[in-house]
Amino acid sequence: MKASAKIVDIILKSERLTLRSFCEDDLQNIYKGLSNKDVIKYYGVSYSSLESSKQQLQWFADLQNQGEGIWWAICAPNGVFYGAIGFNNLSVEHKKIELGFWLLPEFWGKGIIAEAIYLTSAYAFNILNINRIEAFVELENKNSAKALLNSSFNYEGTMMDCEIKNGEFISLMIFARFNTTD
């Protein structure tokens, strides 16, 4: 039997970001991001139609309803959609969770992901009582690796040829950040 914690809808805010739950109105934004060749180059999910993007919206809801994680839409305070960030694979027993994120290309290089990582990490450590946040990044994805390193994550190593994507083996770098508030 899988252990799970109750994860509630929560909005996280900073001066320039609002992280909020996904809703039906985000379907176009999800499609815009997860059909963009630059976004999905190193991402494990992609969609070829607005209709098929509904699967991702449903996955966000199911993940939260099952207590296995939570994802947020990253937005400006005025509602402009930037991307997504969230957690999945929650292990209450081991007090760890996996981080994932993506951003529309027009917002790359502006520190948005670093700020969103800060907000979500604080939530994981202080509210979910997580000890370890881990992230798996494709070896060639230098931008995500840099964002994690700049957000106090440590590089732990690389799993070589550990998954298959588009019929080819890929290698994944492992990053982790630990709760230092104890």
Score class of each variant (00 low, 15 high):
Glu140Trp: 04
Ala3Gln: 13
Leu139His: 09
Ile7Asp: 11
Asn141Ser: 04
Gly167Tyr: 12
Ser21Cys: 11
Asn65Gly: 09
Ala84Asn: 11
Ser151Arg: 08
Glu24Ala: 15
Lys95Tyr: 11
Ser144Gly: 03
Glu98His: 08
Leu149His: 01
Asn154Tyr: 13
Glu156Asp: 15
Ile117His: 08
Lys32Asp: 12
Gln64Leu: 08
Lys32Pro: 00
Ile117Thr: 07
Glu68Trp: 07
Leu17Lys: 02
Asp161Thr: 07
Glu156Asn: 11
Gly33Thr: 01
Lys146His: 09
Gly67Cys: 12
Ala5Ile: 12
Trp59Tyr: 14
Asn65Tyr: 10
Lys13Asn: 12
Arg177Met: 06
Ser21Gln: 14
Ile174Phe: 03
Gln64Phe: 02
Ala76Asp: 13
Gly79Asp: 01
Phe101Gly: 04
Ser14Gln: 08
Gly157Val: 00
Ser46Gln: 13
Thr18Leu: 14
Ser49Glu: 04
Val45Ile: 06
Phe87Ala: 01
Lys142Cys: 02
Asn179Asp: 12
Ala135Phe: 04
Asp26Lys: 06
Leu149Glu: 15
Ala147Cys: 12
Asn179Leu: 01
Asn65Gln: 12
Asn88Ser: 13
Asn29Asp: 13
Ala114Tyr: 00
Lys54Arg: 15
Asn129Ala: 14
Ser152His: 14
Lys54Thr: 10
Ser171Ile: 08
Asn166Glu: 15
Ser144Thr: 02
Ile85Leu: 06
Arg16Lys: 13
Glu51Gly: 04
Glu134Leu: 02
Val92Gln: 09
Asn143Ala: 15
Asn141Arg: 05
Cys162Arg: 05
Lys146Tyr: 05
Ala124His: 06
Arg16Thr: 08
Ile85Phe: 10
Lys6Cys: 03
Gly33Tyr: 05
Asn126Trp: 01
Gly109Cys: 06
Glu93Ser: 11
Gly33Met: 13
Glu140Asp: 15
Asn166Trp: 09
Leu90Thr: 06
Leu17Thr: 09
Leu119Glu: 00
Lys6Gln: 09
Asn154Pro: 00
Ser144Ala: 12
Phe175Glu: 07
Leu34Asp: 07
Ile170Gln: 04
Gly86Pro: 03
Phe60Ile: 05
Ser46Asn: 14
Glu24Val: 08
Ala73Asn: 09
Ile113Ser: 07
Arg177Thr: 10
Ala73Tyr: 08
Thr180Gly: 07
Tyr118Asp: 14
Leu27Asn: 02
Ile30Val: 15
Thr158Lys: 06
Phe125Tyr: 14
Asn126Glu: 13
Ser91Ile: 03
Ile130Leu: 04
Glu156Lys: 13
Tyr31Asp: 09
Leu139Tyr: 10
Asp26Met: 04
Val80Cys: 04
Leu103Asp: 01
Tyr43Ile: 14
Ser152Ala: 10
Ser53Lys: 03
Ser171Lys: 08
Phe136Pro: 02
Glu163Thr: 11
Leu99Val: 01
Val80Glu: 15
Ile97Gly: 01
Ala176Lys: 06
Glu15Thr: 09
Tyr118Pro: 00
Asn126Asp: 11
Gln28Cys: 06
Val80Gly: 03
Ile170Pro: 01
Val45Cys: 06
Leu63Val: 03
Asn131Lys: 10
Trp72Thr: 02
Ala84Cys: 14
Ser49Ile: 04
Glu156Ala: 10
Thr181Gln: 15
Gln55Asp: 15
Asn179Gly: 03
Ile11Ser: 10
Ala122His: 10
Ser46Arg: 14
Cys75Tyr: 04
Phe178His: 10
Ile85Gln: 04
Lys6Ile: 13
Phe87Trp: 06
Asp38Gly: 01
Leu103Trp: 05
Gln28Leu: 13
Trp102Ala: 05
Ala61Trp: 01
Asn65Leu: 12
Ser121Gln: 13
Phe153Lys: 08
